[in-house]
């Protein structure tokens, strides 16, 4: 079959494409992925029992909003990376700003604390648990986002896989925040960031194999 014949084959009866394919695919993936992650958190860990009381604590909202805003930023980046030739725009800068803000909060908290309290501000009671839970809870979102990307056409596969992983890790961290008993800025600045980075690195490593087309 020569190329002109192939062109004729492809064009014949091609019909219109559904508009907004990328957005709708990501919306569906995120819906299912978040449902899976939230369900897993609620069943395996449970929402912290004093959740209502803690709603008036500013640091609870920092802990929730930081990963939520990272997730929004990475959703934008992931939808761009799923389309050939689309630029990332301000997403990397936005990510940098968000991390910088929690680090500044963490550093100020450490500077203001007595030296003997600092170790507790950093490690809390649950840092290992946090580091294990965030990557594990990110798995449903990760699978869903990779599915969304596979129906689209990422051309920078490591970057796309990494963005999928960071998006999944950020959603997972926001959901985990509803369980997490810690309320210190240094804890969030370190362990939430590292916890989200683990699925991001994993995604960047396996992205080229998962997303090839």
């Amino acid at each position: 079959m020569n190329t002109d014949e192939l062109v004729t084959l492809l064009a014949k009866g091609a019909g219109p494409v559904e508009p907004d394919a990328a957005r709708r695919r990501f919306a569906m993936a995120l819906g299912w992925g978040m449902a899976g992650t939230t369900l897993a958190m609620a069943m395996a860990l449970g929402v912290r029992p004093d959740i209502v009381a803690v709603l008036s604590v500013p640091m609870f909202w920092v802990k929730l909003m930081f990963p939520a805003l990272v997730a929004v930023t990475m959703l934008y980046a992931a939808t761009r990376l799923a389309r050939p030739g689309a630029r990332l725009g301000r997403a990397p800068a936005m990510l940098g700003v968000l991390v910088a803000v929690v680090w500044v909060l963490g550093i100020f908290a450490l500077l203001g604390a007595a030296p003997e309290e600092r170790k507790y501000l950093v490690f809390g009671d649950t840092w290992i648990f946090c580091l294990i839970s965030i990557p594990l809870l990110s798995i449903p979102v990760f699978i869903a986002v990779i599915w969304a990307m596979k129906g689209l056409a990422p051309t920078r596969l490591s970057l796309a896989g990494g963005a999928a992983g960071l998006l999944a890790g950020a959603v997972s961290a926001a959901v985990y925040a509803l369980h997490c008993p810690e309320l210190e800025a240094p804890f969030i600045a370190i362990w939430y960031v590292v916890g989200m980075s683990i699925p991001a690195f994993a995604g960047a490593m396996i992205g080229p194999r998962l997303l090839r087309w």
């Binding site: 494409v17 799923a82 389309r83 050939p84 030739g85 689309a86 689209l152 087309w213």
Partner: peptide
């Protein structure tokens, strides 16, 4: 993959 083309691009 023609559905991944966005006319604003």
């Amino acid at each position: 993959y023609r559905h991944t083309y966005d006319a604003s691009q």
